[in-house]
């Protein structure tokens, strides 16, 4: 087991293996998303309260879930990199941040588009989830800005890892404080809670979308980690051999 993990963490091996994994992730994820989109848009019955607008959750929920997932991946792999000094782990953290920021943006944007017909406003200050997502976006920006400000990769890895961990400790506190803040607002009754549990025709497409998006996210993440590995190992022999072999094939 340890031998396998050790081998996986070696950059050239990871570079080869991930190249083989990415198409599988993308194809299977794509199939699930295609099923989820078609079933969600055309076959799921309209919601009894929200009508057809509820179909936005088929993209909103996966995006929101992945925006949090990406932060967890980032913080955990940053912690692993800081404690056990695994270089690949830092590369994962660096790659997860921009993807997380994109998915947070997507969650916010689709949430706003949903809010317009449902609440009658693009931006509802009283909704704790939207506030949490917005603060999460700021946390991603801070992480990426710190990384960009430090030229030395090793130093950038460690410093941003400390920030990611401090942020991870703070996220539950932020969420709690935003909920408390909202609980004092009166009359912001949301339609989300209450109502019967989701029927299966609504639920299965959603589960398929979540699973498909996770796989696509995995493919995107692996792709970015490969770029990070290539950049970090740019002076090593295996990268030189790899690039030279590619050149030879092209000419």
């Amino acid at each position: 087991m340890w031998k396998f993990l050790h081998k996986l963490a070696s950059p050239p091996h990871f570079y080869d293996l991930s190249a083989k994994m990415i198409p599988w992730f993308a194809i299977i994820g794509g199939i699930f998303i295609m099923y989820g989109t078609i079933a969600g848009l055309f076959f799921a019955p309209p919601d009894y309260q929200q009508g057809d607008a509820f179909r936005i959750i088929y993209v909103h929920v996966p995006a929101a879930y992945l925006s949090m997932m990406a932060y967890m991946i980032m913080a955990i792999s940053a912690g692993i990199g800081l404690i056990w000094r695994i270089k690949l782990s830092h590369a994962v953290a660096a790659a997860a941040a921009p993807l997380g920021a994109w998915f947070t943006f997507l969650a916010l944007a689709t949430g706003m588009i949903w809010g317009r017909p449902m609440w009658g406003t693009w931006w509802e200050w009283g909704d704790p989830r939207m506030m949490s997502e917005l603060i999460m976006l700021f946390l991603y920006f801070g992480y990426m800005a710190l990384r960009a400000a430090i030229d030395d990769t090793v130093k950038a890895d460690k410093a941003s890892a400390v920030l990611a961990i401090v942020g991870a400790v703070n996220i539950p506190i932020i969420h709690f404080s935003v909920e408390w803040w909202n609980s004092l607002h009166q009359g912001s009754t949301l339609l989300r809670d209450g109502g019967p549990a989701m029927p299966a025709e609504m639920l299965y497409p959603l589960l398929a979308m979540i699973f498909g998006f996770t796989l696509i996210f995995g493919a995107l993440l692996l792709g970015r980690v490969r770029t990070e590995v290539l950049f970090r190992e740019r002076r090593s022999r295996w990268v030189r051999n790899l690039v030279c072999a590619q050149e030879g094939r092209n000419e």
Binding site: L41, P46, D52, A53, I113, R116
Partner: peptide
């Protein structure tokens, strides 16, 4: 989409 087309398709 029951008049919600703009919102659903744009998202």
């Amino acid at each position: 989409m029951g008049n919600y087309g703009v919102f659903v398709w744009s998202s």
